Amino acid sequence: MRIASGDWALTLDPAAGGLIRALTRRGADILRPMPEGSAEPLESACFPLAPYANRIAHGRFDWEGETFSLTPNHPAIAHPIHGTTWLGEWMVRDSRGDSVTLVHAHTADADWPWSFALTQTLCLSAQGLTARLAITNTDARAMPAGLGFHPWFAREDVTAISFGAKGLWLGDAEMLPTEHTAPDALGDWSTPSPLELPHLVDNCYTGWDGTVRIARRDGDLVLESAGTPYLHLFVPQGADFFCAEPQTTMPDAVNRDAPAPLEPGATRALEMTIRSA
């Protein structure tokens, strides 16, 4: 499926994972395009994170007096990661030339023991993309709920990025948070900085100010998100992409900084914008 507006065009997979397959501006890749024929979510351009973001350590956590155990959900990663909806089936609820709304329903199971409904809306304008994600608890019990987006930005034309944050979680070899430290511990992103680093960055920044500025040779970009105090930055050495992921919770949040309970019938939402500066 394809939507477009002005200089912007987006292709997506409306069934598997609610995945964005490509996002372009004036024909140039803004997000890393998904290989033709691929069904691997980790090769996509962007996918939604729900009902939790990033890893849950060993899949184990306590919630309201009960202990839960989840199994890993991707063969490449030892811990359950990014929730269930990036691996689930979605349906198109509404589609227009410049927008689409997808819905996903989850019934409580071993992968997530609460039922919920999720809505993802993707809208293009002359300025860029606005993506909205909303989760509603359809279970009879309160549940923990974290949301996020996982955009994979094309890196070739990017010269620098910058953003503000108050802290940074260092991680262990399995990318689980270990120590909260100063935001410049792995590089100072408060001023425009190149992505060529001597080390991997796969870390969560706390107290994020909600904006990432991306300098590109063909025109700068801005990533914005409201209500997401966490930014997970993934900058692998030598790759053709980087990820800047707005999230409502930190990795392993249910074991560290648990989200407020989402009561039965209640909804939690976030919005992400990727636009020309």
Rank of each mutant, 00 (worst) to 15 (best):
M1F: 14
G6K: 06
D7G: 08
A9I: 01
A9W: 07
L12D: 03
A15T: 11
L19R: 06
L19G: 02
I20M: 04
A22D: 08
L23P: 03
T24I: 11
G27F: 04
I30E: 06
I30W: 03
L31T: 04
M34A: 07
A39Q: 12
A39E: 11
E43Q: 15
S44W: 02
L49T: 03
A50S: 11
A50E: 05
Y52K: 03
Y52T: 03
A57D: 11
G59M: 11
R60W: 03
F61D: 02
F61Y: 13
D62A: 15
E64D: 11
E66K: 15
S69A: 13
S69R: 15
N73S: 09
P75E: 09
I77H: 05
T85N: 04
S95P: 10
R96K: 14
H104F: 10
H106E: 07
A108T: 00
L122I: 05
A126C: 11
Q127H: 09
Q127V: 12
T130F: 06
R132S: 10
L133I: 03
L133Y: 04
N137I: 06
D139M: 06
M143N: 00
A145H: 01
A145I: 00
P151S: 11
V158P: 06
A160C: 11
S162V: 07
W169T: 02
D172N: 13
A173R: 14
T178P: 08
H180N: 12
T181K: 12
T181A: 10
P183K: 07
D184I: 01
A185C: 15
A185L: 12
L186A: 10
W189D: 07
S190P: 05
T191S: 14
T191V: 13
E196I: 15
P198A: 09
L200V: 00
L200D: 08
D202V: 09
N203T: 13
N203I: 06
G207R: 04
D209V: 12
T211W: 02
V212F: 07
I214V: 13
G227P: 08
P229F: 01
Y230F: 15
V235P: 02
A239S: 15
A239Q: 09
D240C: 05
F242I: 04
T249I: 08
M250A: 05
V254P: 02
V254E: 10
N255E: 12
N255Y: 00
R256P: 07
R256Y: 10
P261I: 02
R268I: 08
L270H: 02
I274N: 03
A277P: 01
A277L: 06
